[in-house]
């Protein structure tokens, strides 16, 4: 992984996978991503990108809509799977 912060990586991934975000939009940590257009296909693509960016295998138990509900829920999943990373940074 580069020196890019986790929060920054997540924000970048989300912007790449959400159809309803402009550059000016601030994505709140508890913003329901479905309202920004994240659908099931978007979740699949996002999951694949997360596996690559965070060098992690998302187990089936994490492949549920609740994981992708908000940026905070995604960050929480990453924190569980990669406790060595500092999510807050």
């Amino acid at each position: 992984m580069s020196n890019e912060s986790i929060a920054s990586i997540l924000d970048r991934l989300l912007r790449a996978h959400l159809p309803n975000t402009g550059d000016d939009l601030v994505i709140g940590q508890h913003e329901p991503l479905s309202r920004l257009g994240l659908d099931s296909l978007g979740m699949v693509r996002l999951a694949m990108r997360m596996e690559r960016e965070f060098k992690v295998d998302l187990p089936d138990g994490f492949l549920i809509p609740e994981t992708f509900e908000t940026p905070a829920s995604i960050a929480a999943a990453v924190a569980v799977l990669r406790p060595d990373l500092d999510i807050a940074s």
């Binding site: 099931s40 699949v44 694949m48 295998d57 089936d60 492949l63």
Partner: peptide, 10 residues
């Protein structure tokens, strides 16, 4: 749809 889901399911 299944094909998409199977890209990440384990």
């Amino acid at each position: 749809n299944n094909a998409q889901l199977m890209l990440v399911g384990k």
